[in-house]
Nucleic acid binder design. Sequence first.
DNA 1: TCTGGGGTCCTAGGACCC
DNA 2: TCTGGGGTCCTAGGACCC
Length: 389
Amino acid sequence: MGVVRGAYPSRVSDAAIAARPADAGSQEAARPPRRVVAHCDVDAFYASVELLRRPELAGKPLVVAGTGPRAVVTTASYEARKYGVDSAMPAARARALCPHAIFVPPDFTAYRAKSKEVWDLVRERIEAIQQVGIDEAYLDVTDVEKPLRVLRALVAELREQTGMTMSVGVGPSRLVAKTVSASFKPAAFAALSREDACERFAGASTRILQGVGPKTAERLAAMGITTVGDLQRHEQEVLVQRFGERMGAYLKARSWFYDDSPVQAGGPAKSRSNETTFPQDIADHAELESVLHRLAEGLCATLQRREIKGRNVAIKVRLDDWTTVTRARSLAERTNDLATVMPVVLDLFRVYAPERPVRLLGVRLAAFEEPAQDAPAPLAPPGQLSLGL
DNA sequence: TCTGGGGTCCTAGGACCC
DNA sequence: TCTGGGGTCCTAGGACCC
């Protein structure tokens, strides 16, 4: 049952989506081709997986969260969200807000398995897919005939075969598609043009724009810009002054929902890390060093399993006052060997030698690529290029 | 009853080379 | 002797996303 959620638009037609600007004799060759992009987002993914396993919990507020004193909420069911519980909130606060909620520790193995089920099925239908995390993906359905019909069928099939409910937003860009699905979920199915999005979301907080996080929203608010409409009306010059050339232009473009970023599958990972937050801060360096050993061991095991080696070793230290420090060193050779990595980790830690209690430690390996051996040839021999004139 | 873990990208400054 | 300007590589911090 492809229910249209969110008040707008009550019905979108494939004909309207397919309509393209007349490109007859196109003098305006610069106009980018019109695209149709969908953003697909599984509703309350972790909580939904838990509900499948325990159907007796259906309709009850469910919170997936760790158990430690510093745990945060990973996902809350929509019943729990009614009480103000939301992702990334400290679990203790969630408990205070909704004491009768059922709290379940996360089971990432199960979520990964269900995620594979979901996206394998989507991939069978749609070629151009960019998965983002475990429960989201962008689809480029420009070349799909009757894209909305196909997407509706996909949503129905997904529900039938996997038990998951997917929200879908459609638009001419990833930005519009994402904003639509996020605004109308759960069980969203809606499409908006760029112009519609500009109108529809003009009164909404700047935070709904992907790319505007808490810090940027705060800086904007200090300038009197709290809504997307405020941002639309603001001089780009002023934005550029405050945020720099690039970010200023980016913010202005976002407010008018201009976005030409392509839907493209991400390449191989660029870094891997392993980090942990302690239930209580640790001041003892010997104890901290043994944690580093455990983290490096786990990281190296992962890299060995995946047959990846890195040249850049880094540690991360978060102090009790929340200051976060990173220290990194590049090696001559790529490695995933604990006997090579660990002395570097220890040296970085001992040179930094935190003077306050530590709440988090992390170890990271990066620079996986073979140093570019097939780099493009220089335009001219270096000798000629160098001191020209 | 403060703030997880795993990532990506951007910026800025310094070293070094030509 | 002093001058100018790029490149690249590297480190550190920060914002953002799921």
